[in-house]
Design a protein around this nucleic acid. Structure first.
Lengths: 140, 140
DNA sequence: ACTATAGTTGACTATTTGGATCATGTTTCT
DNA sequence: AGAAACATGATCCAAATAGTCAACTATAGT
């Protein structure tokens, strides 16, 4: 139900959030190795994030990625929707009976419940719990 | 996220719940036509439900299915787990970083939230809202 | 200018899963 | 016997996900 794409995208964004103050951008290879994400796959994901304007890329030697938004304004739900963790409740088209309608209401409520949880958590929330032990240490 | 299997299984069980008092069992074909479910697929689903002891089958001519449990005791969550709507939050194995752990907590909470919704609704809840217009009419 | 580094792009493959079907067998009623 | 209806196991198809490749472009440092 939670796709690897979403998990990887979140990990990458957290990593970038932790290094926001730093001058140098973060290389794909570095993120890939730190979090055990297949590098070519990560590239593909970062392209999506770049399309949303959440990260900016710097090309050439010493290039990499940098976070382009306020981590406190970006929720996990937005990320999920961006990477296409298709959260449509149920796309089967049975006959339009009363039972069918009643069920769809419940399916919708269930999906909404999980979306609400994701909507309540921002990138900053998670990053703040990671600060002490993670990469932040390098820039003091 | 909500599989057709779960939707179909629920529809079938509701149909059976609505006819609990009736002497004759309900044929697969009838359920299939009433709710627009592919018959061979429905058979496969009913087999699973039979394995869980929720329905009983009667073979031979005039055969069919009958509900074998109290609709008020069967929740949509149980049905979902039975038909294998695999609700595991995230099976990717990244490096064991703090960020990874934090994220998994959120994924787990999101999945749990939707499970809670399903756990709160019983078969009887839905059936009661369908009674007036559906098949129940036939048996007065 | 040359080279190494690093992102860009687009197409491409593979594995899994869910959805659906078939053929054949067995039971029961008439 | 014959028709109706469930039982079973194998099988197939399509879509989505996960992951890969190769050729290209841009920048930094020498």
């Amino acid at each position: 139900m939670i796709s690897a794409r979403l998990h990887y995208a979140s990990l990458a964004l957290i990593e970038l959030a932790l290094r926001q103050g730093k001058p140098a951008p973060v290389a794909v290879r570095e993120i890939s190795e730190l979090h055990g994400i297949p590098a070519p796959f990560l590239v593909q994901i970062l392209r999506t994030l770049r399309g949303k304007g959440w990260v900016r890329s710097v090309r050439g030697s010493q290039g990499g990625y940098r976070l382009a938004v306020d981590p406190a304004q970006l929720t996990l739900l937005e990320i999920a929707d961006a990477v296409g963790c298709s959260e449509s409740s149920c796309q089967t088209e049975s006959n339009e009976t009363v039972a069918n309608g009643q069920l769809h209401e419940v399916w919708g409520a269930a999906v909404q419940a999980s979306r609400d949880v994701l909507a309540e958590t921002t990138l900053a929330d998670i990053a703040s719990k990671c600060s002490p032990s993670e990469a932040v240490m390098f820039y003091i």
